[in-house]
Design a protein around this nucleic acid. Structure first.
Length: 555
RNA sequence: AGUUCGAUGGUGUAACGGUAGCACCACAGACUCUGACUCUGUUAGUCUAGGUUCGAAUCCUAGUCGGACUACCA
């Protein structure tokens, strides 16, 4: 249980800080999503990290919406983000919004202007870009760089008061136009946007940029460990510069490498494209790597947390095999999902020596991994559906399912011996014939026989039907974002295959949306939110490992 | 080219100067009323070259390779 685990680099930093008495030994993190999209598996990593660290070190973790760009942000996203975090099993200590601090940030800006460290620039975006220089050439000072403090104060006030149009002026920090770090070449602090904000409404027409909002928000909340992804590493000097010049609480930023997944795209921009261009049904399409998509797919929060824990955290580039995620999902589902029988691609099996009109009721364990899951009744009769692939007219080598002369067990029922099949005029197999061994009844087997194969089935007169959506990976290639051309060219055309009518055992008729089961020998499935009592819909969450399929593939 | 971060089996991650370990994948076998689960075993790794040291994945130097940065996005 208390297996010894080594610390990741952030835990080491935190433990050192605690040992040094930094911040009085206090640990306070935050998860800072921008409400402009749904959370995905990458965010889940960050959530597990930030909330996990706070929990481990008896600290706190805030949820803070980084809502400084009213153009792309929306309350729809706020709601989904809150919901997803809760579903993942985390509770935030405070819910804040960067927009809560707009007044304070405005005051911070005034302070910097008064210290001669910020100025209003009339240059256009193009001019600013041109003056920025490049990685190998220094930038040039803006002609407005040396305005007086008084003039800057007045112009900035006028910016706030709406006297100027979008883009007409900006507020910039006065640092160093020749700095080797391009971010320190007089970065923009405020821009004008006459836009309605989802929380502040029309109160503001100037909005702070990320760099002048994030660190300040961290500081206001007295965040001790501000954890973000590697691409912000160049921002750290700027993060520190603002905090130092302002003399406010010294939050510190730490960076880790975001996790990438094979056969997946992760950027919000690309995910938005998939949604807008209808390649998927929405943000919660079961093929999406979003938290809501994975939830609808049937993934459990435990599995996702386990995955985040398993892949760990580091600072190097990575692309995690999606098989790792699928493994975690199967591992958890194996423990909790009840076993049921469903026939996806049916062919009729007739048990010729079983009397017409007779039936048996078998009692089956719901979950061999969990005795507390109980049992259920399964009706049996003379004609049952079996999978078409569970019969071969001529058995391949190592094939131990039904073939003339072969014996198999019908799961939870009898051992049957195949006697042949019937075909239509076109040569298609229409039914498979067999005889059963009455003394091989499940639970009271006196036949003394052991058979190599066991197959699932559903009694034809008792069968119910359901729609099943067979999901597969959304992309055909490992790293669609880095492939030649458009990432959408690599979408897997078979990522969803709908089976409109499969046969399920009657006990399943009462299944409710969100229920997770294992269709024995076929995979894990969950009841979709589209499902109704009249029309059940199952999503395939994950396949089972299939040693036979591998054998067939090998030839 | 500048700045900056990184480099351990196919993948992810440990080892903090002292036996390169764990998980996934792959492969082989055992078990099996799920060809599932479980169990056992196998293959396979320290970017390169120097140096320090009794001893280097770890420290130093040089190089190689990879990523990130040059949005009025975050």
């Amino acid at each position: 249980m208390s297996e010894e685990r080594s610390l990741n680099f952030l835990e080491e930093i935190i433990e050192n800080d605690i040992a040094d008495g930094k911040n009085g030994g206090r640990v306070h993190t935050r998860f800072p999503p921008e409400p402009n999209g749904y959370l995905h598996i990458g965010h889940a990593t960050s959530i597990c990290l930030n909330f996990g660290l706070a929990k481990k070190y008896n600290g706190k973790c805030n949820l803070r919406f980084d809502d400084t760009n009213p153009v792309t942000e929306d309350t729809e996203y706020v709601d989904s983000i809150r919901n997803d975090i809760e579903w993942l099993g985390f509770t935030w200590d405070n819910e804040f919004y960067a927009s809560d601090y707009f007044d304070q940030m405005y005051g911070f800006a005034l302070t910097l202007i008064e210290k001669g460290l910020a100025y209003v620039d009339d240059s256009t975006a193009e001019e600013i870009a041109a003056m920025k220089g490049s990685t190998i050439a220094p930038g040039t000072d803006s002609p407005y760089r040396n305005r007086s403090i008084e003039e800057n104060l007045q112009l900035f006030g006028e910016m706030r008061d709406g006297k100027y149009r979008d883009g007409e002026k900006t507020l910039r920090a006065k640092i160093d136009m020749a700095h080797p770090n391009l971010l320190l070449r007089d970065p923009l602090m405020y821009r004008i946007k006459h836009e309605h904000h989802h929380r502040t409404g029309d109160k503001w027409c100037i909005y702070p940029m990320y760099d002048f909002a994030h660190g300040q928000s961290d500081s206001i909340e007295e965040i001790t460990h501000s954890i973000c992804t590697l691409e912000f590493i160049h921002h750290r000097p700027l993060y520190n510069w603002f905090i130092e010049q302002l003399g406010i609480f010294p939050s510190h930023q730490y960076e880790f490498a975001r996790r990438n997944l094979t056969y997946t795209v992760m950027s919000k921009r690309k995910l938005l494209q998939l949604v807008n261009e209808k390649h998927v049904s929405g943000w919660d399409d079961p093929r999406m790597p979003t938290v809501s998509g994975m939830r609808r797919r049937g993934y459990t929060a435990e599995a996702i947390r386990q995955f985040c824990d398993t892949i760990g955290i580091a600072k190097r580039e990575n692309i995690v095999d999606i098989g790792m995620l699928e493994f975690c999902v199967r591992e958890h589902l194996n423990k909790i999902a009840n076993r049921v029988m469903a026939v996806l691609d049916p062919v009729k099996l007739v048990i010729t020596n079983y009397p017409e009109g007779q039936e048996d009721i078998f009692i089956a364990d719901n979950n061999p991994e969990d005795a507390s899951a109980g049992t259920r009744e399964i009706p049996f009769s003379r004609e049952v559906w079996i999978e078409r692939e569970d019969f071969m007219e001529v058995a391949a080598k190592k094939y131990f399912r039904l073939a003339p002369g072969n014996k198999v067990r019908l799961k939870n029922a009898y051992i049957v011996e195949c006697t042949g099949c019937a075909k239509d005029d076109a040569g298609n197999i229409t039914e498979v014939h067999c005889i059963y061994l009455p003394e091989s009844k499940s639970g009271s087997d006196t036949s003394g026989l052991t058979v190599k194969g066991t197959i699932h089935w559903v009694s034809i007169p008792h069968a119910k039907t359901a729609e099943v959506r067979m999901y597969d990976r959304l992309f055909k290639v490992e790293d669609p974002a880095n492939e030649e051309g458009d990432f959408k060219d690599h979408i897997n055309p078979d990522s969803m295959h709908i089976l409109p009518e499969v046969y399920i055992e009657p006990a399943l008729a009462a299944a409710q949306p969100g229920d997770r089961v294992q269709f024995m020998r076929k995979g894990y499935f969950c009841v979709d939110t589209d499902s109704t009592p009249e029309h059940l819909v199952f999503n395939r969450t994950a396949t089972l490992k299939d040693a036979w399929a591998k054998e067939v593939k090998r030839g």
